[in-house]
Simulated scan of single mutants.
Amino acid sequence: MSTFVLVPGAWHLPSSFDLLRGELDARGHASLAVKLPTTGPDPRGGLREDATAIRTAITAVDGPVLVVAHSYGGIPATEAAAGLPNVEHLIYVAAYVPDVNESMFTIHGIPDPDDSDGLFPIGSDPRTQLYADVPEAVADQAISRLVDQRVQPWVDRVTEAAWRTVASTYILTEQDASLPVELQNNMAARAQDVRRIATGHSPFLSRPAELAAILDSIVRERAA
């Protein structure tokens, strides 16, 4: 049986996937969520540390793995999954899909800052940016769980691109106020398969059952 390894985006802890994991469990799928070192509390390191945490989680699984990465999580997941024989599929959910020598900053065309040893602020209105279509009580809880995020992993450049050798799917969020749909379309071109979901940036909170159904369909199609 395959296991979903879930990689959160910036400012988010593994608990952000609790609703999605419940839906996956109901469909008979095992899952685990990774804690990224660059995401607080007590954030440290950069892209390499995040990638190491993901690789450690993947290699600890006894069996095939599907890596599901959200937003920033697509960057360390792309680095981490390269060369691991038990990774059978990469799934990018409104996520960055970097190539070798790219970073989040280069993808956005932003020059590297003079000092990357600091924190990147979440922004003044995370509800609108991240959770516009999330039920109010769920959004309130999600906002209360946001943590610090280091700048360093956004500057660090990828050295390996797993999507070049591993099958991949891009799940594009059509009402996203955080990661522009046009940019998602550009990155989705690097995947073999593209699905769409009519949500904002966080479908694992706004429509966890629908997202789980998409993930389930990917597994079933691979097995067919």
Rank of each mutant, 00 (worst) to 15 (best):
residue 166 V to Q: 08
residue 140 D to L: 10
residue 123 G to N: 06
residue 186 N to T: 14
residue 120 F to E: 12
residue 66 L to W: 04
residue 206 S to D: 09
residue 3 T to V: 11
residue 61 V to K: 03
residue 210 E to P: 05
residue 176 D to K: 09
residue 201 H to M: 04
residue 133 D to H: 06
residue 70 H to Q: 09
residue 31 S to T: 06
residue 192 Q to I: 08
residue 221 E to L: 15
residue 130 L to K: 00
residue 106 T to K: 03
residue 189 A to Y: 12
residue 34 V to C: 04
residue 130 L to A: 03
residue 171 I to G: 09
residue 16 S to Y: 11
residue 87 V to W: 02
residue 119 L to I: 06
residue 84 L to N: 02
residue 143 I to H: 02
residue 15 S to K: 14
residue 104 M to G: 09
residue 217 S to F: 08
residue 175 Q to L: 05
residue 3 T to E: 00
residue 39 T to F: 01
residue 3 T to P: 02
residue 158 V to H: 04
residue 22 G to A: 06
residue 179 L to E: 01
residue 112 D to H: 10
residue 193 D to Q: 15
residue 125 D to V: 03
residue 34 V to S: 03
residue 88 E to C: 00
residue 135 P to Q: 11
residue 180 P to R: 09
residue 38 T to I: 08
residue 150 R to N: 03
residue 33 A to M: 07
residue 159 T to E: 11
residue 211 L to S: 05
residue 163 W to G: 06
residue 12 H to F: 09
residue 204 F to E: 10
residue 3 T to F: 00
residue 93 V to C: 11
residue 124 S to K: 12
residue 28 G to N: 06
residue 75 I to Y: 01
residue 60 A to T: 11
residue 121 P to F: 08
residue 138 V to T: 09
residue 197 I to N: 05
residue 209 A to W: 15
residue 206 S to W: 07
residue 66 L to M: 13
residue 43 P to E: 07
residue 116 S to N: 14
residue 38 T to N: 02
residue 209 A to Y: 13
residue 54 I to K: 02
residue 59 T to V: 15
residue 210 E to D: 13
residue 198 A to W: 07
residue 122 I to F: 09
residue 40 G to W: 01
residue 35 K to N: 11
residue 201 H to N: 04
residue 147 V to T: 15
residue 34 V to G: 00
residue 214 I to A: 14
residue 184 Q to M: 11
residue 196 R to Y: 12
residue 60 A to S: 15
residue 57 A to T: 12
residue 78 T to L: 00
residue 144 S to C: 03
residue 49 E to S: 11
residue 165 T to F: 00
residue 98 P to Y: 07
residue 87 V to L: 00
residue 66 L to S: 13
residue 180 P to A: 01
residue 155 V to Q: 10
residue 111 P to M: 06
residue 139 A to T: 02
residue 132 A to Q: 14
residue 112 D to Q: 08
residue 106 T to P: 12
residue 215 L to G: 07
residue 146 L to N: 04
residue 46 G to D: 08
residue 25 D to W: 15
residue 163 W to M: 07
residue 39 T to D: 04
residue 204 F to W: 12
residue 123 G to C: 04
residue 86 N to I: 07
residue 105 F to G: 00
residue 145 R to H: 14
residue 85 P to Y: 10
residue 179 L to Q: 03
residue 5 V to G: 02
residue 202 S to M: 01
residue 150 R to I: 00
residue 55 R to W: 11
residue 52 T to S: 10
residue 131 Y to H: 06
residue 26 A to N: 13
residue 148 D to A: 14
residue 127 R to T: 05
